[in-house]
Amino acid sequence: MATDSQGGGGHNPLEQFAVETWIDIDVAGLDLDITNSARVMAIATAAIIAFTMLSIGRRSMVPGRMQSLVELSYEFIANMIRDNVGNEGRPYFPFVFSLFMFILFCNMIGMLPYSFTVTSQIVVTFGLAFVVFIGVTIVGFVRHGVGFFGFFLPQGVPGFLAPLVIPIELLSYLIRPVSLGLRLFANLTAGHTMLKVFAGFVAPLGAFYIVPGAIPMAAVVGLTLLEFAIAFLQAYVFAVLSCIYLHDAIHMH
């Protein structure tokens, strides 16, 4: 995305987020076009499946490089669940693993030039966040029944404050998926927009003077490294927050 901005400063840095139809599909009047975003999601899914299945295919005792990487991510998520949810979190391990890998791969694919960043799409991040939110709420109600409503009145709060505390806690609970999705969306969008803006300075400045062109170039290099870190960090944060919400739903407090 940094390299396709040679058109100069007039190029809109938000254009990289535009969704375009690739294959037109309509099912029963519903618009189910395969867009560039859906294409990247499919690529990410296929890449994760290939990554986890092929590298472990030989199931060797002494792992190769790829197999170690797969095992590392497996244990990374397993430890995350054990630390944040506890042993009751075991059944949700495949979900958190899929979530983390999906976001990580989408973020990383977004770092490739000319590709598309799915996780900068508000629908995608909010979709994932609401899946987590609804899933966690269901887990809470299945585990505690009506008692899960007690979650909205923290222990130790005097009764007369309940009319004030309960709506605020309820609202705070409803805000969770929004902030979860918004955080991923905002980080990825802001990072990629910034990259685009700085990359837009490189060509026009560098065309006339080498030294001024080098400054935004250095910024682009630095930002790219930062973006790789953020790509990982945001996948991690999303997964950890999902684990924490799961912990709250399972243990109530």
Partner: peptide, 20 residues
């Protein structure tokens, strides 16, 4: 804190402090 103002600091607090 993840929930409830009177809940003790959870061990995942430090993990959460990593993100932005």
């Amino acid at each position: 804190f993840t929930h409830g103002s009177l809940r003790g600091p959870s061990k995942d607090g430090e993990d959460r402090a990593r993100g932005d």
